[in-house]
Computed example of a mutant assay.
Amino acid sequence: MTQYQDALPHGNIQEVLPDVFFVTGSMKNEFFGSMWQFSRNMTVVRDNGNLTIINSVRLNDEGLAELDKLGKVVNVVRIGDMHGVDDPFYVDHYKATFWAMPGMGVQKDLKVDKLLTEGGEMPFSDCSFFEFKSVQRPEGILRLDREGGVMIACDSLQNWVEPDEFFDPETVSTMANMNFFVKANLGLAWLHESKPEPSDFIRLKEIPFEHALCGHGYPFINNAQAEYHQTFNRFFNV
């Protein structure tokens, strides 16, 4: 029998754009030899009454009841190799189709139903996919062609402007010293693990967008592209 991670503390589901929902929860994990407690986000896209979960965060019973009011969960999508601990719960609970990138390490009891690739089939309409091609661990970004373009990222793009209620004090101090709390940032742990090259960000700059919903940090609503382009230049001089 599959063992699921318990539901950790989380906030309420918010509709941040029409038919696009966002919820912030908790994560505890070991990084660089110590335990960290920090926040992580799940995005839910509604398309013709069907829901797609991206960057899954397990909700408690009350949260699941609110999710069910939004529509029917039909897809669970993994776009980052460093996330996915709650994918098995949602796939099993809703008998959902599971999407993942080729080469992702998924749990042994979890079957990838559909591969997520550039130019391939997408989990919902008005959607395209960007793949980081130079990285050591699979990572991608879904672009929703609504509201001027919505980038749904995992660890690559982040927007931890400041710590929130789901951090513990020790982790706040550690991450502040490492410059995690920067608007329109790149994921520092992701950079360390995946080692992307400038070529990926040259390609990423060609994709227009207005908003960014990331696996970590606050929703970046309006004028996100210019801020992230400055970040790409700061890290990679592109």
Rank of each mutant, 00 (worst) to 15 (best):
residue 1 M to T: 15
residue 1 M to V: 14
residue 4 Y to R: 11
residue 5 Q to P: 03
residue 5 Q to V: 08
residue 7 A to T: 04
residue 7 A to N: 02
residue 9 P to Y: 05
residue 10 H to V: 00
residue 11 G to E: 08
residue 16 V to R: 02
residue 20 V to K: 01
residue 21 F to T: 06
residue 22 F to Q: 05
residue 22 F to C: 00
residue 24 T to W: 09
residue 28 K to Y: 07
residue 29 N to S: 10
residue 30 E to T: 14
residue 39 S to C: 12
residue 43 T to M: 14
residue 43 T to H: 10
residue 44 V to G: 09
residue 45 V to F: 06
residue 45 V to S: 00
residue 53 I to P: 04
residue 53 I to S: 02
residue 53 I to W: 01
residue 57 V to M: 00
residue 57 V to C: 04
residue 59 L to Y: 05
residue 61 D to W: 07
residue 62 E to A: 14
residue 62 E to Q: 10
residue 62 E to W: 05
residue 70 L to F: 06
residue 73 V to A: 07
residue 74 V to D: 05
residue 75 N to P: 02
residue 79 I to H: 02
residue 80 G to N: 14
residue 82 M to S: 15
residue 85 V to L: 06
residue 86 D to K: 01
residue 87 D to G: 03
residue 97 T to A: 10
residue 97 T to I: 13
residue 100 A to N: 07
residue 102 P to N: 09
residue 111 K to V: 14
residue 111 K to N: 05
residue 113 D to P: 05
residue 113 D to H: 12
residue 113 D to G: 10
residue 115 L to P: 06
residue 122 M to L: 08
residue 125 S to E: 13
residue 128 S to I: 00
residue 128 S to A: 07
residue 133 K to E: 12
residue 137 R to H: 07
residue 139 E to M: 04
residue 140 G to N: 04
residue 143 R to G: 01
residue 145 D to V: 06
residue 146 R to G: 08
residue 147 E to L: 06
residue 148 G to Q: 06
residue 149 G to A: 08
residue 151 M to T: 00
residue 152 I to L: 15
residue 152 I to H: 11
residue 152 I to W: 10
residue 154 C to L: 02
residue 154 C to S: 15
residue 155 D to Y: 03
residue 157 L to I: 11
residue 158 Q to G: 12
residue 160 W to R: 15
residue 160 W to H: 10
residue 160 W to M: 15
residue 164 D to W: 14
residue 167 F to K: 10
residue 169 P to W: 00
residue 172 V to H: 06
residue 173 S to H: 12
residue 174 T to K: 11
residue 174 T to V: 12
residue 175 M to P: 03
residue 176 A to W: 04
residue 177 N to H: 09
residue 178 M to S: 10
residue 182 V to D: 09
residue 187 G to Q: 00
residue 188 L to M: 12
residue 188 L to H: 09
residue 188 L to D: 02
residue 190 W to N: 12
residue 192 H to G: 05
residue 192 H to V: 08
residue 194 S to V: 09
residue 195 K to P: 02
residue 196 P to G: 03
residue 198 P to I: 10
residue 198 P to Q: 05
residue 200 D to C: 01
residue 203 R to K: 14
residue 204 L to A: 06
residue 205 K to C: 12
residue 206 E to T: 11
residue 206 E to Y: 01
residue 207 I to Q: 08
residue 209 F to S: 02
residue 212 A to G: 13
residue 213 L to R: 01
residue 213 L to F: 01
residue 214 C to W: 01
residue 214 C to H: 04
residue 216 H to T: 09
residue 217 G to W: 06
residue 218 Y to V: 12
residue 221 I to N: 05
residue 221 I to M: 10
residue 224 A to P: 01
residue 225 Q to W: 09
residue 227 E to I: 10
residue 235 F to M: 10
residue 237 N to R: 09
